[in-house]
Nucleic acid binder design. Structure first.
Lengths: 257, 257
DNA sequence: GAGTGGTCTAGACCACGAA
DNA sequence: TCGTGGTCTAGACCACTCG
C-alpha cells in the first residue's frame, strides 16, 4: 500500500506518463484482445483499484477516457460495459454556421417578386410535409450579384410555416437568410437541416429568368429547416449548372480528441 | 467549513443537482454576463474552492465541463481562460462509414469496360491534381442493378494513383468500393473525402449508355479520396436526374454532450 | 520562488439497479 | 440487501510559467 509520498515519488521516476493514461492504454489493448469482449463488463472500479494499486480517482480517469472515446458505457448499479473494441470514429462534414450551406449566397441579394399566404396544393404539400389546410408564407424571387445588372444566380422559392411567418424584417430585398430572421424573432435555434440536390433541365420561363438557353442543365437544391421536430421553412433554388456546383468535404473524426 | 457528512447531507436535501453542475451553470451564467470576459482568466481553482466552500475535485469537474463545451481552455502555470461566452456549437453531417456517401451503390454491381494505366492529359491532370508524368490507373464502367438487365444507374470513371494501384482483388465486376481495397491492401485509412456535385446534360454516347434521351438532365459527382495529404483515388459518376438525387442531413451538435 | 493547473491518494455517502 | 457507478472531501506532490 503506497503512501502518498511514495506514489508521488513513483510519478517523479516516470514523469512523462500519467498512470491513468497508462491504464487507459492497457485497457484499450486488453479490450482489443477481446478481454473483456464487446458486450461484456469491465471489472468494477474497486477491483481495478485493488488489482493495480491505484486510487479510485486514477482508475476513473482512465475509464472516463475510454468512455469519451466511445468504447465504454457506464451505468450505476450495473457496471461498465464494452461497446466497441476500437475508438469510435466517423466521417463528419462540419460547419460553424448554417450560412456555410449556402456560402455562394454571401454578397448576393434576393429580389423578391412574389409574397403570398398560400394553402399548399397536392404537389407542394408533399414538399412541405403539410397537413391539409395548413397555411404557409410563400416568397419567390431571383438571387442576383451585388450589382443589379449582374447575371441572375438562382431562382428561389421559400416557404415559411404560418406560426413562424410573422417576420417584421422581411424586406423587398433580402440580404440575410430567412431562417436567421426566424431564429431572432422567435428565439429558437434551427436544429436540423435536410438538403436534397437534383439535376434538371432549365426550360421556358425559368430559362428566360436565368438568361440561359432553354434545355440547359441545372441543379435544384431543396433545403428543409427544422426546429426540433417542427418543419419551419423550406427553400428551393434552381441554379444553372454553368454557374454553380456544390462542393463539400468530409473529415475522419475521432470522438474525444 | 462543512464536514464530509454535512456536505453529503446537503446533497441529500437537494439530491437532484450535483454541486459541480450547479457551479458549472453559475459559471456559464457569469461568463455570459461578461464576468470574466472572453479572453480573461477565471479565478484559480483554490480561490474558487475557498470562496464556494467546495473541494478542488468538485470545482475541477465544473471547470472541465465548461472546457468540454469549448468555453474554456486551461494551461498549467497560466490559468483558465475564457474563449467563448456560449457553448461552441456547430452543424455536422456525420457518417459511420464512407459507404454512406454512396449508399445508392449498395446492392449494385459495376461492370468494368476499361482498365488502363494512363498519364493524365491537360484536362485530367487538373481533376487529379497530378504532376506532369504521373501515372494513374483508370477504370471505367457502368453501374447496374443486381440483375444484368436492370437499367444502368450511372457511368463511372475511377482513377487510382499509381503507388496505390496494385490491387490484386480488382475483378471484372466490382462489388465493393475501390477505396476499401486500397485501405485493406496498404493498411491505410482514408482521412478526407472531397465531393463536388454538378449539373449536366447527358448527350451522345453517354445518353445511349444510360438509356436516356439525349439532352436529359443529369448529375455529375466527383469524389476525391485522401490519405493524409495524399490524393489516392478520384471517382466521377454521371447519374440521370430521373433516377437519382442526392440527400443529406445536418444536425446541430454541441461539443461535450 | 510563487502560483498555476495536472496528477494522485484515502477515505466517505449517495442513488440506482439487480437479486 | 448488496454492489455498482456518481459525487464529494481533505490533503499531497509535480511540471510548468512567469516575474
Amino acid at each position: 500500500m503506497p503512501e502518498p509520498t511514495d506514489a508521488s515519488h513513483a510519478d517523479a521516476l516516470a514523469p512523462s506518463t500519467p498512470r491513468h493514461l497508462d491504464l487507459a492504454r492497457s485497457l484499450m489493448q486488453e479490450i482489443r484482445n477481446g478481454h473483456p469482449p464487446v458486450g461484456g463488463l469491465l471489472p468494477p472500479e474497486l477491483e481495478l483499484c485493488e488489482r493495480l494499486g491505484m486510487s479510485r480517482y486514477a482508475v476513473r480517469q482512465a475509464v472516463q477516457k475510454l468512455c469519451s472515446l466511445g468504447m465504454l458505457t457506464r451505468q450505476a448499479g450495473v457496471g461498465t460495459r464494452v461497446v466497441s473494441a476500437t475508438p469510435v470514429s466517423r466521417y463528419v462534414q462540419s460547419m460553424d454556421d448554417l450560412g456555410d450551406l449556402a456560402r455562394y449566397a454571401q454578397g448576393t441579394r434576393l429580389a423578391v417578386s412574389t409574397r403570398a399566404r398560400i394553402t399548399p396544393g397536392d404537389d407542394l404539400s408533399e414538399l412541405l410535409r403539410s397537413a391539409p389546410g395548413e397555411k404557409w408564407l410563400h416568397i419567390a424571387g431571383v438571387r442576383h450579384g451585388r450589382e443589379r445588372k449582374d447575371e441572375p444566380i438562382a431562382l428561389v422559392d421559400m416557404y415559411v410555416a404560418a406560426p413562424y411567418s410573422k417576420l417584421p424584417k422581411l424586406a423587398e430585398e433580402l440580404t440575410v437568410p430567412i431562417y436567421t430572421l426566424i431564429e431572432e424573432q422567435f428565439g429558437v435555434k434551427v436544429t436540423r437541416v435536410e438538403q436534397e440536390i437534383q439535376g434538371l433541365t432549365i426550360d421556358g420561363d425559368n430559362a428566360e429568368a436565368l438568361r440561359v438557353p432553354a434545355g440547359s442543365a441545372g441543379l435544384r437544391i431543396v433545403r428543409s429547416y427544422y426546429v426540433g421536430p417542427t418543419l419551419v421553412e423550406v427553400t428551393t433554388g434552381i441554379h444553372p449548372a454553368s454557374r454553380f456546383s456544390y462542393r463539400m468535404s468530409f473529415q475522419l473524426a475521432r470522438a474525444g480528441g
